[in-house]
Each structure stands twice: as C-alpha cells, then as structure tokens.
Write a protein that binds this DNA or RNA. Structure first.
Length: 933
RNA sequence: GGGCGGAUAGCUCAGCGGUAGAGCGUCGCCCUUACAAGGCGGGGGCCGCAGGUUCGAACCCUGCUCCGCCCACCA
C-alpha cells in the first residue's frame, strides 16, 4: 500500500463538496423504520421560511448532527427529520413590507389568492436556500422524509387535531379581550406581545358630578379612551369617596352620564384613587365591567381608528391623533387638571412592533388547563427531562399559570380554520370540507376566514412528520423522539405546546429529553441582529466573505445606516474562509453550560487552526506510512504478546486514547458538548502531536542499511500511529465530518472496514489498553524534558545546540525509567544526558543551572560561561520560597490535631507523602543555591 | 411586583469540599524537512464583598453589592 501525500494547508472548499455528494448518494443519512436496530430520533426544529439560517440554527443543528452521527456510529437507527415551517405572521410581515416598499400596497389590495401565490413563491425560494445551507454544513438529515408545515400530511394532522379538540370541548369560540395588532390587522397571542416600559404621560382629568355637587379627578395614561368610559371606579374602603359611590358623573366631550362604582381592584394610593373604566379597551377595566355588569362601548376599530359610538368629531382618527385632539378639547373645556411624565408599560407586537390594542373580539381559543396538566404530568414522572435542569422550573412555572390560547389569526398564509358559518348562525366544524350546514342543512355556508396560529401546526410537528393521525410504522419506531434540541426562547411557544398536544393525542411525551442550547451573541454579548450589523452569517464563516460582499448584502436587505457602519467595524477585513468543520467544532467547543455563547471570527480561527493541526499530523503520518501493512499489524495487535512488544510511548498513547474515548462518550451522553470537543482537542494537539509524534519520529526514520529489528520496530510504531489516528478520526467525526472523512479515506487501513468513516463504529474505552504504568513513566519523561527546556530557555541556549546534562536521582525507579528512555528524552529536550546516582552531595566544580523534577530528580545543566550567577540565584530563590511555602502549609495542616482526627485516612496519607516530597525538594533546591558559591 | 441565572487570569469560560485550570491574548526565544493557521518557554488570580458551617471552602449556608434574563392586567 503506498502512502499518499496531502497539501500543507487544509482546503475545505476543495474537500467539502466531494464528500457532500458522496454521502448524499450513499443513503447513509436515511434511517429505515423497519430496521432491526434501536431507533434514535431527533426532529429538527423546522426553520421559518422567512430567509436563511442564522448562527442560532447553526448551533442547534450542529449539536443535533453531532448526536445523530455519534448514535449512528454506535449502531442506532438514527433518524433526523428535516423540514421547514410556514411561519405565518413572519412571512406576512416580510411580504407586506415588500408590498409597501414597492408601491405602498397592502395585502388587501392584492387579494387573498394573489397574496397566497406570492407567499408560496417566497416559501419555495427561502426553503430551497435553507436546504442548501443545511447541506453545506454537512448535516446528516434524512432528506427523503423532508416535510413542510403546510403540506398535505400536515394539513390533515391539523384538521384532525382541531376537530377532535373541538369535539372534546377543548377548542371554543368566544368574545374575549384579546391583543390586537393594528398594523398586521390580526389578533396575536399573549406570548407574541412584548411589554416594554416606555416614557409617556399621566393625565389628570376632571369629571363633574351630574348633580352639580362637585367633581372627581381620574388619572389616565390613555386619555383618548375616555370616549369609551362607562364608569369611574374607586376602592370601597376609600373614605374620600364614600359619599360618591353611586353618583353619576357627566363624561366630558360626550355628555354621557356614567356611574361611580366601587371595586377592590382599585389602588387607593395611586393618583387620585379614582380610575376611569373603559371596558372595551383595557383588560383590567373589562374584568371590572364583568364583575359589576357595566356596559361596554367599543370605540376603536380593527385599523386602530376611533369609531362610533364615539362623537363624530373623533371618528376615523388614529389612536395617537385622537389622543392629541381629546387632550386639547379637554383642556379647552377646562377638564384637564394636569399632566406629568410617567413610565407606562406598553405592549408591542413581537413581529410588527406595533402598539398592541387590547380589544374585545370573537376568536377561537384552545382551553389549556387539561392539556397543561398532561404535559406537567410527564415531566413530574420523569418521562421528559430538561437539560440543563434549571429549565424545568421555568417550564413548570409557566404551565401551572397558563391561560387559554387564542389560536385564530386574521391572516391568510396558514391553515384555514375548518369551521363553516351558516346564515342560520350555526357553525359546523368538520374534518372534510362542508357544503351544507350541520344544523339547518342550508347550503349557504362559508368557511371561517381566519387561519390558525403558526404554532398550532408546530405543536403537532413531532407526530405529523411521522404520519399521525395514521398509526404508521415510522410513528411507532421514532415517536417519542429521543431528544429535542432547541433554544430556551421558544419553551413556551413550542416545547410546551408540543408536549401538550403530544401527550393529549398519543398518551406519550413527544421526546425523552429537551436539550436547550445557549443563545449565540456577538463577542460583546449583544444579540446578533441585522439592524445592528453584528450578524455573523454561518455561510460567511464556512466560505469566507469580503467586506464588500457583506456591505452589498446589507444594502440589498435595506439595513439601516448604522448597520453598515457596524459591519465595517466588526468585519474590517471581511471573514476568511474557515470551512464547515471549523465552525462546527467551534460551536461545540464554545457550547458550555452557560446561557450565552459569545462568538467571534477570532475564536473560529483558533479552531480552524486545530483542524489544520490535525490535517498536518495526518500529513506527517501519511508521509511515514510507506511499507505499512494494516492487516499484518492488526494480527500482531490481536496476539497475546502485543502489549509487551510495544514501547512505552506506544502503550502510553494507546492508553491516553482510551481515556479520551471514555471522556467523549461520557460528555456526549450528558450533552456536555464543550467537554467532548475539548477532550479531543487536548488529545490531538497536546498528546498525539506534541509528544507521541515527536517520540515516534526516530523510529519512523528509515535506516540507511536494512536492519531487521529496526524494521520491525518501525512497523509497530507505524501501526500505532495509524491506529491512533484512525480512532481519533472516528471520535472527531461527529464534530468535523469533512476533514475526518477526507483523511480517513487516505489512511491505510484493514480492508474489512466500511466505505465511509460515518458508518464505522464509534470508539469505546477498551480497558485492555489502559496502562497506568506507561502513563506514570511517560509523565516522568515529560517532566524532565520540560524542566530541561525551561533551563535552556532561561539561558537562551540556541535550539540547535545540544547540551550535556546530568540527571541525578536517588530513586532507583526513576533512574531505571530515565535510563530506558534516555534516547527519546535526549531527543525531545535536545540534550545529551548522563545519569548519575545521587549520593546526596551536590555536584561540585563548574557553575551550573539546576532544578528539581518532583523530589527525586535533580537536573544539572552546566552552561559554561553562559550562566548568570545572579540571575540563577534569583530564580532558585523563587523556587525555594515556593517550596518553603508548600512545606509550611503542609506542616501546619498535619500538625493540626483536628485534621488528623477528622480527615479521611487517604487524605492524611496523601498530605504526608506530599510533605516528604516537598521537604526533599526544598532541601535540594537550597543545596543547589549554596553550590553557586 | 414575582422568579431565575451569573460574578474565578487581560478576554471568554471550565472547575462546585482536600496541591487554582483551559482556550485566546500578552512577553521572550526559534522559519528545528507534519504544521509560522507552527514550535519551545515565561509572566499573570485575596476565585465579587461580609459573615457562618467544616479539620479543611472558589466550591455548602446566610446576607449584601453589581450585571443579565424571564414572567406579571396596575390606571
């Protein structure tokens, strides 16, 4: 088998497309529901078809792919379900923005059919782009199963769920106080409203008593709503107004008379202690009106404009304009008592940013109490676990305080509600399209104009993608999913609702574990946003982007001026191409248990360097594997004397590999992605590259004249290097699939292995190769080498210069190890060592730099004229003082009777041993100092 | 107003009862034929503050001070 050579630098742009194609064609991404192996399933949170993937998607999906690839390599039937979400209101918002920009039109100018046509076109474009991105990232999604939330199967699931819930009385229609978005002209759910405190004013108004005996002062942040007041409320215990309760006041500007009522919800200490009641446009006031049976006047319409029965003067004004007009008129009429600045909580639509208008409207609702109880139940029973665990509380708290869910929307892009209204007033809800009223039989029926909240279909997603409501084989195999990986920001929107629906319809939780990822921010901890111009686009990181390209794109997307400026600041030199592996590995390595991941190009660059390091280690291996026979080596390794035939460094690296495999496995099992990535990083860079490859070099070097023993040794070292590398590639493959596959394909290896790395078996720790003794010996060699290098560096010894060094030790064990590994040690530290059995006396004669390794080994490095006695004294004095401090501390601890009496025995023994070592070390350092004269 | 999380090296974070760690940055020396996207070495920490528990606390408990989230119908 001939070795192959690799270029000096890893070039992902050349490598990635090749394997993408091969994997696609291989069918490895597909998991069959009829396969005999144990199923492992993840449903990809379907990205919105609003644009392209952002870094949050890249993070979540990379973690999913790591899990899927890892489990696939462990032999599971690993299924990862792809798909996209129609994202009703988000798509509306985007399309309408486009309409406004290109001619000031609204969806109503276009009409329902034409709007839907455009929405579908948008979906095709955006969905295609998302697919493309997912493929480029190397995600091993089961493409044959790909779904969309508005496809046939999903539509069927939505209808089934809606009708069933309606039959069960869990979906109902009612007139309730809802959140109205006057810009999108639709109702939105409580979750889609963000309440922010904004600066506004508090107006004090004078309402005169109808009987002319006085007046009452009310304070409000929304004076325009006074047009719809139907009462003034005071607290029943408020003595100031004891006599006023029951009186009528004349409502200014309208002339209407409204009563003064008593209700305990009023806060006596706020303002005047009297509050105007506008039942139709304030949730508090509405509830008050219900308690007291007050009339309701709706004076704001769906467009956010004042309407009758408000006085004609104001009708047609937008809320903001009406406020100005009302205040002016009140002032003119002498009803305005005062204005002061006031912080007001203002609800804004999450999507459009419009100020939410609380309104009374007839809508469809989903009753949540019973559904929530089911979801809470599976969590309490431990059927679904949250990782990190802290989220359990957040989930439970919301679920136990949940309110009914408004599911209808006055939008077009989505699932139309399967309810038909008849002229007789009856509503027919049906799984199939209705042509005749279910009550009177009339053909005068028309389908409800509204559509369902996007999250209604999302809630069914883990089931509907597997064929529900049909009892399919896929559903049986892959439901419940093994894990859901998503962001904590959609626990309520999505996770909770999937659990409610899943438990309700199947009796089973949709997923055993919910793993919540961190939120990706920029390096300053600010959320990435296009308006801020701090977005790092995953594809830019993968393929690279020039500053010009980034600016051009921002311009095409109509990003604000400030964003352009920020892009110039953040990405002055653009983004260099890093490759998908570097990005994937970075995301894993940075994904600690924290709530945020601060990502920057610099950090990805560090991990790209790691990928390149592995590349070059492999390059070295391939350059030195000529003549290597994997079959022969495998047979040797399986033999009874295999271990004895290997050198200590070989046994050491194989032992370290076992630890690494165990660590990676354990970390992934616990969703500690950064620990898994870092274990591999540490092993590859600091064990395999820094030490093993260096120690292997002399053995790999071809002798001029053939020597049977050397050739045999060389073959063994080649075998260990190839094996360790091959196993490392397997460990790393879920994180960095491309580079590992590329190297693996070129590596000489036994012929019975499969055609792709992605279907090899994931390494597990093999205790037979764990070798504590080799690790102990290697540590001594490393420590001595490091100490020698330190002395060399301290005295600026040229790297080319070999130096004679005496290694003096009182320990026969250490002496034996050092003797055996003198050659590799000399090679690694660039020294010519001489072992000396120390007799306690310090070497006399020429001045030398000295240091200790542990308590046993004294390193004496004669440097001839190089040594600076004063500097050496300072350095040694520092070491001595540190040792003295350690000795002191240990002395004190062991002199403490309580410690001896109460601490565990092994701890005491450990401390005693340390004291002995530190004392000896200290003693010899002191002697070394003395020897300097 | 409730609830949750965080404060450890210059930066980003691990560690969560028994010798304070990593990555990046920084400083010094090196283009040593796998890799300068590299090698070798160094410096750098009252582990937020104050108490307590313990033989022993970065770690457990209490309080405080800052940051940051989430939830909530107060005019």
């Amino acid at each position: 088998m001939s070795s192959q050579t690799l270029p000096k630098q890893y070039d992902p742009s050349e490598v990635e497309p090749r394997w993408l194609r091969l994997w696609q064609e291989s069918g490895y991404f597909h998991a069959d529901e009829t396969a005999p192996s144990v199923p492992y399933a993840i449903t990809l949170p379907p990205p919105n078809v609003t644009g392209s993937l952002h870094m949050g998607h890249a993070l979540g999906s990379t973690m999913q792919d790591i899990l899927i690839r890892w489990k696939r390599m462990q032999g599971y039937s690993a299924m990862w379900m792809p798909g996209t979400d129609h994202a009703s209101i988000a798509v509306h918002h985007l399309l309408e923005k486009e309409l406004r920009r290109s001619g000031g039109k609204t969806r109503f100018d276009l009409g329902r059919d034409e709007f839907m046509k455009q929405a579908w076109a948008w979906k095709e474009k955006s969905g295609g782009r998302i697919n493309e991105q997912e493929k480029l990232m190397g995600f091993s999604l089961d493409w044959a199963r790909e779904r969309f939330t508005m496809d046939e199967q999903s539509n069927a699931a939505v209808r089934e769920a809606f009708v069933t819930l309606h039959e069960q009385g869990l979906i109902y229609r009612a007139k309730r106080m809802i959140n109205w978005d006057p810009v999108s002209e639709t109702v939105v759910s409580d979750l889609e409203v963000n309440v922010v405190e904004e600066s506004g004013s508090l107006w004090a108004l004078r309402y005169p008593y109808a009987d002319g005996t006085g007046e009452i002062i009310v304070e409000t942040t929304r004076p325009e709503t006074m047009l719809g007041d139907t009462a003034v409320a005071v607290h029943p215990d408020d003595e100031r107004y004891a006599g006023a309760i029951g009186k009528m006041v004349v409502l200014p500007l309208t002339g209407r008379e409204v009563p003064i009522v008593a209700d305990t919800f009023v806060d006596k200490t706020f303002g005047s202690g009297a509050v105007k009641i506008t039942p139709a446009h304030d949730p508090n006031d509405y509830e008050c009106s219900q308690r007291l049976g007050l009339p309701i006047l709706e004076i704001i319409d769906a467009k956010g404009k004042i309407c009758a029965p408000a006085p004609a003067k104001y009708v047609g004004m937008l809320v903001e304009a009406a406020r100005k007009a009302v205040v002016a008129d009140l002032e003119e009429g002498g009803f305005l008592v005062g204005i002061k600045p006031h912080k007001v909580p203002r609800g804004r639509s999450e999507r459009s940013g419009a100020v939410i208008e609380p309104m009374l409207m007839e809508q469809w609702f989903c009753k949540t109490a019973q559904l929530a109880a089911g979801a809470v139940g599976v969590v309490e029973a431990g059927k679904t676990k949250f990782v990190p665990e802290v989220w359990t509380k957040t989930f439970m708290h919301w679920m136990t305080n949940i309110r009914d869910w408004c599911i209808s929307r006055q939008l077009w892009w989505g699932h139309r509600i399967p309810a038909w209204h008849c002229t007789c007033g009856a509503i027919t809800v049906s799984r199939t399209d209705v042509t005749a009223c279910g009550t009177c039989g009339s053909a005068e029926v028309r389908q409800d104009e509204d559509i369902l909240d996007t999250w209604f279909s999302s809630a069914l997603w883990p089931m509907s993608t597997l064929g529900w409501p049909q009892k399919t084989r896929a559903l049986q195999a892959f439901y419940p999913n093994s894990v859901l990986v998503t962001g904590p920001d959609i626990i309520f929107f999505w996770v909770a609702r999937m659990m409610m629906m899943g438990v309700h319809f199947t009796g089973k939780t949709p997923f055993r574990t919910v793993y919540l990822t961190a939120i990706v921010t920029d390096e300053n901890g600010d959320k990435m946003s296009k308006t801020k111009g701090n977005v790092i686009d995953p594809l830019d990181v993968v393929r690279g982007a020039s500053l010009e390209q980034m600016l051009a794109r921002a311009e095409a997307e109509h990003a604000p001026e400030a964003a352009q400026k920020n892009i110039k600041k953040h990405f002055a030199k653009g983004v260099p191409p890093m490759g998908a592996d570097a990005l994937r590995f970075s995301l894993a390595a940075l994904n600690t248990s924290g709530r945020y991941i601060r990502l920057s190009i610099d950090r990805v660059e560090g991990y790209r360097n790691f990928i390149n390091k592995l590349w070059n280690a492999s390059r070295f291996a391939l350059m030195n594997l000529d003549g290597f026979d994997p079959e022969r080596f495998e047979a040797q390794l399986a033999g009874p004397d295999a271990k004895a035939a290997l050198g200590m460094p070989e046994r050491w690296i194989l032992s370290r590999l076992q630890h690494t495999a165990a660590e990676v496995d354990a970390a992934l099992e616990a969703y500690r992605f950064s620990d898994a990535a870092n274990a591999i990083y540490q092993f590859v860079w600091h064990e395999l590259c820094d030490w093993y490859i260096e120690l292997a070099k002399p053995h790999l070097h071809q002798p001029e004249t053939p020597d049977a023993e050397r050739a045999a040794r060389r073959h063994l070292v080649q075998g260990v290097l190839a094996t360790v590398l091959e196993q490392t590639l397997r460990l790393l493959h879920p994180f960095a699939p491309f580079v590992t596959e590329e190297i693996w394909q070129k590596l000489p290896k036994p012929t019975q292995l499969p055609a792709s790395l992605m279907v090899t078996i994931f390494p597990r720790r093999d205790d037979a190769w764990v070798d504590a003794e080799a690790e102990r010996q290697m540590k001594l060699v490393q420590d001595v080498a490091v100490a020698c290098r330190m002395l060399r560096a301290t005295y600026n010894v040229s790297p080319a210069q070999k130096i004679a060094v005496s290694l003096r030790t009182v320990s026969p064990l250490a002496a034996e190890v050092l003797a055996r590994f003198q050659a590799p040690l000399d090679h690694s530290a660039k020294i010519t060592s001489a072992l000396v059995a120390a007799d306690g006396a310090v070497a006399a004669g020429e001045l030398a730099a000295k240091t200790m390794v542990g308590a046993d080994v004294e390193i004496v490095m004669p440097l001839g004229g190089l040594i600076d006695v004063a500097a050496e004294r300072t350095r040694l004095a520092k070491e001595i003082s540190k040792a003295a401090k350690d000795v002191d501390g240990l002395d004190k601890k062991l002199g403490n009777a309580d410690f001896i009496a109460r601490a565990p025995e092994e701890v005491i023994a450990e401390q005693r041993a340390r004291l002995v070592d530190e004392r000896a070390r200290h003693q010899r350092l002191v002697e070394a100092l003395a020897s300097l004269g």
